[in-house]
Design a protein around this nucleic acid. Structure first.
Lengths: 340, 340
DNA sequence: CAGTCGCCTGGGAGCGCTCCCAGTTTTAGG
DNA sequence: CCTAAAACTGGGAGCGCTCCCAGGCGACTG
């Protein structure tokens, strides 16, 4: 391999191999209509010269870059450490390699006009499309991208979801499953502990809770519903508040909160699942390591990432919203023995 | 703002404003030689039309993209959760906004030929330059990038550092400071607990330990040197092993290992700093929250990131290697009262 | 009032690629 | 062996921008 500074062009490779720019282009892009021996010849001169196509020129001519961006309006501090994002990134990565794109994370800080900076970059030519996660801080950005005509797919449910393609999970059905499971386990006073109303997924999960109780003919007791920040601390506080209303089960709408809730139950001398059964939501890895292990509603985070990539690159626009199913994963925290 | 699908071009903006493509370009790029009233006029039509320059065309013509990439050959799982990376990313982000570049993280998985994929992307036109962190897994990649002629700056010390611009910290001097501090505190049997030899920074820190003891006229006892994986567990194991040689102080060469070491000391019934003084290395946030709080050698991670960006974009190539100083931060784990 | 300089302005010439079409060669068919 | 179709090949015409140069114009000089 030649380590020359300057990069060669298609034209030059063609000159060396004794063919035209077009033929070299066909070989590089693996297109048909090249005689096998010519193809081999060209391939070997590409190899020999260490030629790499210029992405800028390619992007300009073809109007595609082969780059997909994940914008993260959450600070990097949150990103680093949240297992949800880790799984999501994995899924996106997988999806990208399936479609032959490259994947890159654009961390966005909220300082002055960063949103502007971002849409500038993203809007024109840098990327083929953008995946963004819904959340209070990103919703403005998402709307801005949509209004700019940027190819964007949202993970989750932004406040303004008009005209936005998105991938989400069955929040409502998932939480309903959790409640049905607890009812099936003979629980009478089932509480809900979830994130504040600012988080749309939380509202959806609360809806599922309400619907499931309703369908079972139970009354919904306001005191058995507690909303807190979706953090470990929020879970702890929320559970302490709930205990005053003597629940015998609680559906904690995020596993992170469930971690706090389990700790609170321990500190308050309640045993899980005997005194209080717990069912989480999310299916984070940490939920497998609690004691007792957490029964939870698993969302297919990795599939969400993969699906987002495909949706982003799907020209046919088969569907604008894809909702992926959630499933119940039994642990020991709900008082039901593991399935066969 | 007009949300038309198709993006306008410089030429079209010019036509609307009644000026030429060149003048619009001057306004967009904030170049001189435009009459103020014309500038205002053009700016307002740009505003009105929502025009954004095409980055691909710009990159092709100017040979610059304004994008800086951080390649992460460590799996995303490691990345997510390592506070070192979090600080580094912050620093790079800062540096980028200082020079007006955009910053993007390229996660690289080690699957088949990902290295190839990466250098393809990175080598041509996508980015102006790449920042890579040194480490066993990334060293091949770094060499490959260098050989391709990619503009690259390495953070840390790769195995093969010939012809590579890099930013590093004073590992040797830092550890020497730690030892001098412990000597000054009256410690007699000072141990070293660091990462295995595969980690070059660890070797440098061990060198600092040796030099400082040497300068103080002390003998170096092989049993007081212990190398383990640079994890919390490694720190725990390493400290347990060291205790057989009755140290009254230990310099743990990474704060992560120090976390494990402190736990081990606690489990073994030793008090810190009375029985064993501890000085760490890195200055991670977690070191502030241990009990007792960890005295440690702080490396300016954020500055490392900023410096890397400037080095990457520095045409003059003022210097090829920048070594940033480390400093001692006093905690309670070394048995010296806090400074005034 | 001519000459010079500076500030502006417009347009040509690419950057290296893709896309498309017109040619040329090969292959198959009659 | 001729012809039609298929397979292959080369080059023109951009993609939208930057860079550079030539020219226009007003202001200042002597």
């Amino acid at each position: 391999m030649d380590n020359s500074r300057r990069n060669l062009t298609l034209e030059e490779i063609g000159r060396i191999a004794g063919v035209s720019r077009s033929t070299v282009s066909r070989v590089v892009n693996d297109l048909p209509n090249v005689r096998p021996e010519i193809r081999t010849l060209v391939q070997s001169t590409i190899e020999k010269t260490g030629y790499l196509p210029n992405q800028a020129a390619r992007a300009l001519a073809s109007r595609r870059t082969g780059l997909i961006g994940l914008v993260m309006p959450t600070g990097v501090d949150e990103l680093f450490g949240d297992p949800y994002y880790s799984a999501l990134v994995h899924g996106i990565q997988e999806g990208c390699s399936e479609v032959g794109s490259v994947f890159s994370i654009f961390p966005v800080y909220e300082k002055q006009g960063q949103t502007t900076v971002l849409s500038t970059l993203v809007a024109q030519g840098f990327v083929d499309g953008v995946i963004a996660t819904a959340g209070q801080r990103s919703d403005d950005l998402i709307s801005a991208l949509r209004d700019r005509g940027t190819n964007v797919v949202v993970v989750g449910h932004p406040a303004d979801s008009r005209n936005i393609r998105r991938v989400d999970v069955e929040n409502r059905i998932g939480s309903a499953m959790a409640i049905e499971h607890l009812i099936g386990a003979g629980r009478e006073r089932i509480a809900f502990l979830g994130p504040t109303a600012a988080h749309i997924y939380g509202t959806e999960r609360l809806d599922g809770y309400r619907q499931a109780l309703d369908s079972a003919g139970r009354t919904i007791e306001a005191g058995l519903i507690e909303l807190q920040e979706p953090t470990v601390e929020g879970g702890y506080r929320g559970l302490v508040a709930l205990l005053r209303h003597r629940p015998d089960a609680v559906h904690v709408a995020t596993d992170t909160m469930a971690l706090g809730a389990l700790q609170a139950l321990r500190d308050q001398g309640r045993t899980v699942p005997d005194d209080v059964a717990v069912v989480g939501f999310d299916g984070l890895p940490a939920a497998l390591e609690t004691s007792p292990s957490l029964t939870t509603i698993v969302q297919p985070v990795s599939d969400v990432g993969r699906t987002a990539v495909h949706l982003l690159l799907d020209d046919e626009r088969a569907s604008d919203v894809v909702i992926l199913p959630t499933r119940l994963r039994l642990g020991a925290s709900c008082g039901v023995s593991n399935p066969v």
